[in-house]
Amino acid sequence: MIVKGGRTNYGEPIGILMLDTKFPRIFGDIGNAETFSFPVRYKRVVGATPQRVVKEADPSLIEPFIEAAKELEQEGVSAITTSCGFLAIFQDYLADAVDIPVFTSSLIQVPLVYRMLKKNQKVGIMTASKPHLTELHFRGVGINDIPIVVYGMEHEEEFPEVFLNQKETLNVTKAEQEVVTVAQRMVRENPEIGGIVFECTNMPPFRNAVKNAVNLPVFDIVTFTYYVFDVIRK
């Protein structure tokens, strides 16, 4: 058997482009390596703060993200994702820049979820900030024609203060309750929802709590990453 070299390190199949953040990332968050049962490789994009990515959709970040994606590819990963679903707006740019699969956002799963539902059902999307999740993001991943309902965390207390404003401590119990409360309100006010997709990569630690509270399937960036890993692993 002959194997090919050319790199320093091996065995990290998934590369993750990280926002420049300082808030806690607990087990279940994409930014916590213990979330995964396989090795991942992180690459922080300096200056890509939640303010610039989520609130400003800053186009000047396209090039730094492209460069970071190319570096991950050169370092040997087999697929690339990101730590923020709002990077859906960069999906085409990043996918075109490298020769490996790129899935910038959990929102890419929305068409799949929709096709699993009845014709009169919709996909519920939970996001960190509804006012900032726009048609531009939906077009970026090709979901602008799919029946969706969007609810955000922007009116809660703990969740946006930590994950949007970068508070360096997290009350896990409070954040979980806020996510569950928003999910329950979304489903109660929109009973036609048949499945939920978390846009926000900080929500997966609360997936089971939401699933149990609303009795609906919940898809997020972690479930998506496991799916891609199963596809690409050798």
Rank of each mutant, 00 (worst) to 15 (best):
I2D: 05
V3W: 12
V3F: 14
G6I: 02
G6D: 07
G6F: 13
M18R: 14
L19A: 04
T21G: 01
K22W: 03
P24C: 07
R25C: 05
R25Y: 10
T35S: 12
F38G: 08
V40R: 10
V40Q: 07
R41F: 03
R44P: 03
V45N: 06
V46H: 14
V46G: 09
A48R: 08
V54G: 03
V54A: 05
E56Q: 15
A57I: 09
P59V: 11
S60L: 14
A69N: 10
E73F: 07
Q74S: 15
S78K: 15
A79C: 02
I80V: 02
F86K: 10
L94I: 15
D96A: 15
D99G: 15
I100L: 10
P101A: 10
S105M: 06
L107V: 11
L107M: 12
L107P: 01
I108A: 12
Q109R: 08
V110D: 01
R115D: 11
R115S: 11
M116N: 08
L117C: 02
K118G: 00
Q121T: 01
Q121H: 01
S129F: 06
H132G: 00
L133K: 07
L133D: 01
E135C: 02
L136F: 11
L136V: 09
L136Y: 12
H137P: 12
R139W: 11
G140C: 04
V141A: 04
G142I: 10
I143W: 10
I143P: 11
N144H: 15
D145T: 03
P147S: 07
P147T: 02
Y151A: 07
G152K: 04
P160M: 10
L170Y: 09
N171E: 15
N171D: 15
N171P: 13
E178R: 03
V179K: 10
R188D: 02
R188V: 07
V197G: 06
C200I: 06
T201Y: 05
P205F: 13
A209Q: 15
A209L: 08
V214C: 06
V222E: 00
V222C: 05
T223F: 02
V228N: 07
F229M: 11
F229E: 05
V231F: 14
V231D: 05
K234S: 11
